[in-house]
Design a protein around this nucleic acid. Structure first.
Length: 119
DNA sequence: TTTATGGCTGTCA
DNA sequence: ATGACAGCCATAA
């Protein structure tokens, strides 16, 4: 438990933007998806959809954040820059994880947001 | 401090 | 339907 006064060893800082974003993503139930813009909005950063993508890319490996449940506004898995570690294999993985949760993709690789959107 | 960069998103042709 | 552009704003350098 924390001391009653003073910063103590760990300085209590307001939650960073990333943490707030991760926090929201953690709330997305299994079998559901949310868009980047939606997550940003829920996190209190209405126009920061891009930062959500950035925050996802910055996730540590063993995190419990279900990053795969975040898709773009068209209801599809966003394309990565095409490079970097993992790179596009992450796209496949994301889709596989979603399908494993029961999220359906149509022939064009899109998800029906009316049906699977969180909330 | 300033600049550059993006797992985005509307809007318009 | 697709493709180009311009806003958007936190991080990293």
């Amino acid at each position: 438990m924390s001391s009653a006064h003073g910063p103590g060893r760990e300085a209590r800082r307001p939650p960073s933007t990333r943490e707030r974003i991760w926090n929201v993503v953690r709330r997305i139930p299994k079998g559901r998806v949310a868009t980047y813009g939606q997550v940003a909005y829920e996190a209190g950063l209405p126009r920061a959809a891009r930062q959500v993508g950035y925050a996802m890319a910055a996730l540590p490996e063993g995190s419990d954040v279900p990053w795969h449940r975040v898709v773009n506004a068209r209801g599809e898995v966003s394309r990565r820059s095409g490079r970097g570690a993992g790179g596009r294999s992450a796209e496949r993985i994301q889709r596989a994880l979603l399908e494993a949760e029961g999220v359906a993709f149509d022939a064009r690789g899109r998800i029906d947001l009316e049906r699977f959107r969180w909330e």
